[in-house]
Write a protein that binds this DNA or RNA. Structure first.
Lengths: 190, 190, 190, 190
DNA sequence: TATGAATGAGCCTTCATTCAT
DNA sequence: AATGAATGAAGGCTCATTCAT
C-alpha cells in the first residue's frame, strides 16, 4: 500500500495561509486550498476532521512557530537591554518574513471560533519570555508590571507599524526602527 | 405607511455589525442581515451595489465614528500631558463600549478587500490628532517622531490589552489602566 | 413581489417519485429531482427543510392518496361481498395506475427512516375500511379475525401479483383477476 | 499468516447485511462494510467488480438461502395439507430469524437495478415448490391456479404480517398464526 | 493477495443576487 | 421603493473506486 505522505500537511498549511491572505478568510475554500496544495479536496480530510479542525491546527502550528521566533538557538538571554533588543529585532524579522502567517494569527485570535482553543495557544504566550520578564523585574531592569502589559508595551507598536508599512507597501528605515525600539524600551524600562 | 428610506441604512449597518459579532464574519449572510434589520434581502440592494460594497461602506462609517471618539465636544486640546491623557482615556472608553465595531475594523483593516480604500480611511487617521501631534512636537512635549510612530506607541498597547481582556473575559483595573497610560506616555514624551 | 407558486410542490413530488423509481432510492439526488421538476435545487429548499423532510412529506402525501383509493365517492358500502369486490378492484386499479407511488410506499415503509413517522400513516390504515371490517364481522359476513389479518389476506396477494406482473412486463387477465379475488374472498369470508 | 481467501466473501456479505439493516441502504458505504468485515476497501474489489455487482451477488446468495428455507432435509413432501403447513411454518420461521435478509430481498426485488437478473432468482422461485404445486393440483388438493397465484395467496399475507409486526415491535401469537394459516389454506385449497 | 492512501465526481445545502409583482 | 420568490454557482464533505506498495 501507499505510505502516508506526511509532507502533505505542510503543503496544505502553506496553501491555506496563502489563500487566506490573498482572498481573505471568506474566500478561503477547501477546494481552493486543495488546488493550491496540489492535492484532492478529499485528501485534506484524511489529515483533518473538517475545515474548522484544519484551521485550528493550522493556527496552533503557526503559533508555535511564532513562539520560537523571539529566541534564536544559543542566544544569550542575560538580563540586559541587549537581550531585549535582540528578541525585539528577532520578532521584527519574523513579522517581516512571515507577514501572512502573522496577520492570519492576529485576525484569527480575534475571531469567535478561537475562543475554545486552549489558553496556552493564545497569541503571545512564550515560556522563555515569561521567565525573562520575571527575572528582569526582579533585577530592577524593567518596570514591575504584569507580563501581558510588558508584552503589549514592548511589541504592540512594532507589530502595528510593520503591518501598516506592509499594507502601504512602504518600508521602515533602520533609523526609524531604532527610534521605535528605544521608545518601546523607555516604556518598560526602569 | 411606508417607513422613511434613509432610516433603513443605519438599521442595516446595525444589523450587520450585530450578526458579524455574534456569528463571525463567516456566518454573516445577507439574508440574516435582512432579517435582523427587518427588511427584505432585495431591499439591501437598493442601497448598496452588493455585499462587498455594503461592508466597505459600513467600514468607512464605523471608521468615522471611531475617528470622532478621541475627542469630545468642547474638549480642551491644549498641548499638555493632560490632553493626551484625555484622548487616551476617550479612546479606551470607545473601545470598551464598542468592542464589536472595533474588532470588526481591525480585522477588516487587514483584509485584502480593504486595501484599495483611500488613505484617509485607514485605521488611525484623524486630522485633529495629527495637528495635536505636530504642535506637541514643536513644543518639545513629545519626541520628534513620525506621527504614525507616535500613534502606535501611544495607542497600540492599549488596543491590544483591551482586546485581550475582552477575549479572556477579564477586566483591566483602574490601577493597571494608569500604569499603561504612564508607560505609553514615557514612550512618546520628551 | 413574486407570489409563491404552490403548484411547484406537486411538480417536485412527481419528479421525486419518478427519479426514485427509475434510478432507485440511491440514485435519487436533489439535483436530479430539481432538473426533472424544472426548478432550481435551491427552490426545493423553499418548500422543504431538507431532503429527509421532503421524502417524509412525500410519503405522507402519497399515503393519503392511497388511503382514498379504496373508496370512490358515493360508493355503496353496504355489508356485502359486492362491496368487498368493489374496494378490492379499486385498489387494483390504483396500484396499476400508480405503481411507482405504490412501490415507493412499500419500500419506504420498510426503511429505518420511517420508524418515527406517526402511526396513523403506516401503510394500510384507513378508517372507512376499519369500520367496514368491523361491521362485516358482526354481520357474520367475514371471519372474526384481527383487522390487520383481514387486510393482509385480502390485499397482500393482489399487491404481490401486480408488482410482479409489472416487473416482468406481463399482464393479469380479467379471468385471472377474478380467480384471485375469489380466492382472497374465500380466505376471509365465513 | 494470511487468512484464507474464500473466507472473506461471507464476511463481506455478513457485514453488508448488517450495515444495510442498521444504517439503511443509504448509509451503506463500501468503507463501512470493509470496516465491519475487517478488510480493506480495496480488498472488496478483488472479489467483486464494483458495488452494484457485490449487492447483486449478495442478493442472489441470500435468495438461495431463502429458497432452501421452505424445505428441511428429509422432510416428507407428500401431497397433503400437512406438507403445506410445514413449508408454510418453515417459511415463517425463516422470516422471523432472518428478517433483515428478508426485508433486504423484498426491497431490492423492487429496485430498478435488479430488473435484469435472471428469472430463476426472482423472489419466490423454488423448484421443489413448483413441483409440489403441480402435483397437488393434479391430485385435486388445491385449486387449479397459476403457480404464482398459488404462491401469492399462500405466502404474501404471512410475509406482510411478519414484516408489520417486526416494524411495530409486536409479536404474532401461535393462535393468530394458525388462523392465518387456515385462512391462507382456504384460499388455495379445493 | 492485500492494503491504506489518494482521488474526482457528486451530494446536500446555502448564499449573493435577480425577478416579478 | 419594497418585497418575498426564485435561482445558478459554489461550499463543505463523502463516496466508490484506483493507485502504489
Amino acid at each position: 500500500m501507499r505510505t502516508k505522505d506526511e509532507e502533505k500537511i505542510p503543503r496544505i498549511y502553506h496553501a491555506a495561509i496563502k489563500i487566506i491572505n490573498s482572498d481573505g478568510f471568506e474566500g478561503c475554500s477547501m477546494s481552493k486550498i486543495a488546488l493550491e496544495a496540489n492535492v484532492s479536496p478529499a485528501t485534506i480530510y484524511l489529515y483533518f476532521e473538517n475545515k474548522e479542525d484544519m484551521i485550528k491546527k493550522l493556527f496552533i502550528h503557526v503559533k508555535e512557530r511564532m513562539g520560537h521566533s523571539y529566541f534564536k538557538d544559543n542566544m544569550d538571554i542575560s538580563v540586559s537591554k541587549g537581550t531585549f533588543r535582540s528578541i525585539w529585532l528577532n520578532h521584527y524579522q519574523y513579522i517581516m518574513e512571515n507577514i501572512d502567517e502573522y496577520v492570519f494569527i492576529e485576525n484569527f485570535s480575534n475571531s469567535p471560533q478561537i475562543s475554545h482553543i486552549e489558553k496556552q495557544y493564545t497569541i503571545d504566550f512564550c515560556p522563555v519570555s515569561e521567565s525573562l520578564y520575571d527575572r528582569s523585574k526582579k533585577a530592577k531592569l524593567i518596570q514591575n508590571l504584569d507580563n501581558d502589559i510588558i508584552y503589549s508595551l514592548f511589541f504592540a507598536p512594532l507589530s502595528y507599524l510593520v503591518k501598516k508599512s506592509k499594507a502601504n507597501k512602504t518600508t521602515v528605515s533602520t533609523n526609524e526602527l531604532m527610534q521605535i525600539f528605544e521608545a518601546s524600551w523607555r516604556a518598560i524600562s526602569l
